[in-house]
């Protein structure tokens, strides 16, 4: 099936991109790897008059290490590059692992880091062909006033199915966002709005240019676990990234789980109160954390797996991620 008609512009510099975005604002759309957007175009979920292709911009494809150990990844770096980069594999292994769990190899070749973070929230009632959608009322995400997944729902609860967002949040990443007006840096944890209708804070004239990952603090490890049916291809039905800090005696000082794919944005779970005095990894302790995480998850019946099951799995994934993170050399 053909794509809708649009004008394609392939700027050669960031300045040009920002100018284009500024002059066009609501009409233009950014095309990165295309693995998600081209499908959206084919299904007429987006019908832009102008598409700004980013593939010819050399600057966004770089990975660099700053003097202070900070990792800077260009938004157009492919997931394949993240998965195989020795630098990332050695110092931020959870990030490489999470990239490796996305889709299948040819998709990772094309898909980009920026694309994965800006991935539109998904819903089995929304990510459908035009034919399918034409036989039902427009939902909140399509500007309507109904939710097909949650009866009497009052807002869009489409799911943030990015695999990299939870991991990067656990790693404390920040984003550099650019526009004609200049640049701003925001913590990734504030990037998501929690609104299915408009999942992130990017303004129409803004572009995500870099992801900044701070150096891994001593004694902290991060691990990511993903729930999927097939060993490949599937978006996460739930995902848990955990950052854990141990003290020299082996007690857990800090646990920071980020839940993915069980809400409109990644969900950060805080355990501050429960961790007073440090803990060892007992089954009881794990169960307490799992219960807390499950209670914070907010899955609804809008993916191909049952919501109750997905909530339950948040607990399982959390335990697994935590065990794995603790077993890693920090």
């Amino acid at each position: 099936m053909f794509l809708p008609r649009f004008e394609l512009i392939q700027p050669q510099s960031m300045q040009e991109v920002c100018n284009l975005l500024q002059e066009d604002r609501d009409q233009a759309i950014l095309l990165a790897g295309g693995t998600a957007l081209v499908v959206y175009l084919r299904y007429r979920l987006r019908q832009p008059t102008r598409v700004i292709g980013l593939k010819s911009l050399p600057t966004l494809k770089e990975i660099s290490l700053n003097g202070d150990g900070t990792l800077v990844i260009g938004a157009m770096v492919s997931l394949k590059t993240i998965e195989t980069s020795p630098l990332i594999k050695n110092h931020w292994p959870a990030l490489a692992e999470a990239a490796q769990m996305v889709a299948v190899p040819p998709i990772r070749q094309q898909a980009t880091l920026g694309g994965n973070l800006c991935l539109d929230t998904r819903c089995i009632f929304y990510n459908q062909s035009e034919t399918f959608r034409s036989s039902q009322k427009n939902c909140f995400k399509l500007g309507g006033e109904v939710c097909h997944a949650v009866k009497k729902g009052t807002r869009c609860q489409s799911v943030c199915q990015s695999d990299l967002a939870p991991v990067l949040m656990a790693l404390g990443a920040e984003l550099k966002i650019a526009s004609a007006a200049g640049e701003r840096i925001v913590p990734l944890s504030t990037f998501f709005t929690g609104k299915g209708e408009k999942p992130n804070i990017l303004k129409p004239d803004e572009i995500l240019v870099e992801v900044i990952v701070p150096p891994s603090p001593p004694a902290v490890s991060v691990a990511y676990e993903k729930l999927r049916v097939r060993e490949g291809m599937d978006f996460p039905m739930a995902g848990v990234a955990v950052s854990v800090k141990k003290n020299p005696e082996g007690y857990i000082e800090q646990v920071k789980p980020i839940l993915g794919a069980v809400g409109t944005s990644p969900i950060e779970v805080s355990f501050e109160g429960k961790l007073l005095g440090g803990q060892t990894l007992t089954d009881d302790f794990l169960q307490t954390l799992a219960q807390e995480a499950m209670s914070r998850a907010h899955p609804v019946g809008n993916l191909a797996m049952d919501a109750t099951y997905r909530r339950k799995m948040v607990g399982v994934l959390l335990k697994r991620a935590l065990r794995r993170a603790l077993s890693m050399p920090s």
């Binding site: 394609l8 392939q10 790897g33 295309g34 292709g53 040819p106 998709i107 094309q110």
Partner: peptide, 12 residues
């Protein structure tokens, strides 16, 4: 490198 030709614009 193997890629999906259905997800790439020819002009790119």
């Amino acid at each position: 490198i193997p890629v999906r030709s259905c997800l790439i614009l020819a002009a790119e």
